[in-house]
Design a protein around this nucleic acid. Structure first.
Lengths: 245, 245
DNA sequence: CCAACCTTAATGTCAGACCTTTAAATGTCT
DNA sequence: AGACATTTAAAGGTCTGACATTAAGGTTGG
């Protein structure tokens, strides 16, 4: 683990990279303890604040955790699915909001990925997954729900569908695609009629999953995508007209 | 932007969270300049090193960039696809390697997602995407290629396939799934015969994409998944036997 | 034998200083 | 007047040294 003093990059960035590489390559295994900050400072020939900045960078990526007190220190962190979900969602959300990704593009990606899960979910879903889907459908059909609550329930429904595939890697990948769409979906005002249509489509998907009918679930998702795209187009058109006037 | 002095969490973590929330919520827009480190220290009533640690956390997530010199400072960063890819790949790779995700699970997720892209890619791929796929196939059929180079070419082939869908969000999501598999694939020793089989399957997929035949591309990917799973099972069985003996 | 205390090794935080970079402002020459 | 060189100030990057806080482990007294 050495650094290049001639590089233009920050020392803390270089040190973080050196340690990160050691972790990713497997040289530092899970729960291994790094040298203390003072020792790292000596090894890299920098001061302790610089080492600390490097460690904070790694902590931000959940690569390490720190513990105070005697026999404390920085330890290589086992990246949990929870943490990975969180990072995935944050990154995806920012990517969508900052790069003016069109609703159409994001929506297409989301449903394409979700359709990939549907056959697996239809095959393997537990009664629990199905119950969650039904519960969310019920919530969505209640009157007086705010648009945001409706969207949140929509996300919960789709997460249950994805989780039904019983593949944590798939759930992780989809978390970003589904959750990051929520801010975009929140721009849509759902009329009572469009809510009814969505609830109906959700019900069809849940029925298909219950019947272990993968193809029908895929078809249901395709219909839902078409409906969602229609809805968005309507909202965008209306907004454009009001701007013109 | 206020912090809770009674919290058990690090001050730098709290400050990072406060600023991150401001960015994600849109209160701080792209290219907005944060107050200087000294000003932030005053606002949050902490010292400059603490502020710096918070800023490094954000820099690690590519949420901000810093610039030295007069009129420099920390600016909200537009998250580029490149940076997002990188983070996605790092996180996915660690998630797979640290949680002893089975090859089977990861492989299933990867191909499920990739099949979701195939129809779109068959529809929209440019001549360039197709040329990349053909070039990688050619590289894969050359003798004397190391297993690692073969795997790298395999990844390049699949990325071209995914990019063919012309949906950057999809490419971003798939980057993690495809690249993170590489370390797992590297555990497999490819015999000449299995390489031939893979090249043949790749050729079939490329042919389907060239013919704008989505369903055939999906079928090709399914065959490739089955073959890859077979290969892995063989390797794992052989390894288990040698451990017993 | 167990509980309260102390020691100690870490991280967390602070204050102040100095170095380096950078762009804007100023000055000078043609 | 305009182009080029110089100065300057603002801001991040780094260092030093110190103190506060925490928690594990040993020690001591009941």
């Amino acid at each position: 683990m050495k650094i290049d003093p001639n590089s233009t990059a920050d020392l803390s960035a270089q040190i973080a990279k050196a340690i990160r590489d050691a972790i990713v390559s497997g040289a530092l295994i899970v729960d291994a303890r790094l040298p203390s900050e003072a020792e790292l400072a000596e090894q890299f020939e920098v001061s302790r604040p610089t080492v600390r900045e490097a460690l904070k960078r790694l902590a931000a990526q959940s690569l390490i955790r720190t513990q105070r007190g005697a026999f404390g220190g920085a330890f290589v962190n086992r990246l949990s699915y929870e943490e990975a979900y969180g990072q995935q969602i944050t990154t995806s959300t920012l990517l969508l909001s900052m790069n003016s990704v069109g609703f159409e593009t994001a929506c297409e990606a989301r449903f394409a990925l979700e359709r990939a899960c549907a056959p697996l979910s239809a095959e393997r879903r537990s009664a629990d997954h199905l119950a969650t889907m039904r519960a969310e459908i019920h919530r969505q059909s209640q009157p007086g729900l705010t648009d945001e609550a409706f969207c949140a329930s929509d996300v919960a429904f789709h997460r249950a569908l994805v989780d039904g595939a019983c593949n944590p890697v798939l759930s992780y990948q989809l978390a970003g695609a589904v959750e990051a769409m929520q801010p975009l979906m929140n721009m849509i005002t759902f009329t009572a009629r469009s809510r009814d249509a969505i609830v109906e489509l959700h019900t069809g998907i849940a029925d298909a999953v219950e019947a272990h009918d993968g193809p029908r679930a895929v078809a249901g998702l395709a219909s839902l995508e078409a409906h969602t795209q229609d809805l968005a187009r309507t909202v965008i058109t209306a907004r454009a007209r009001s701007h013109d006037g």
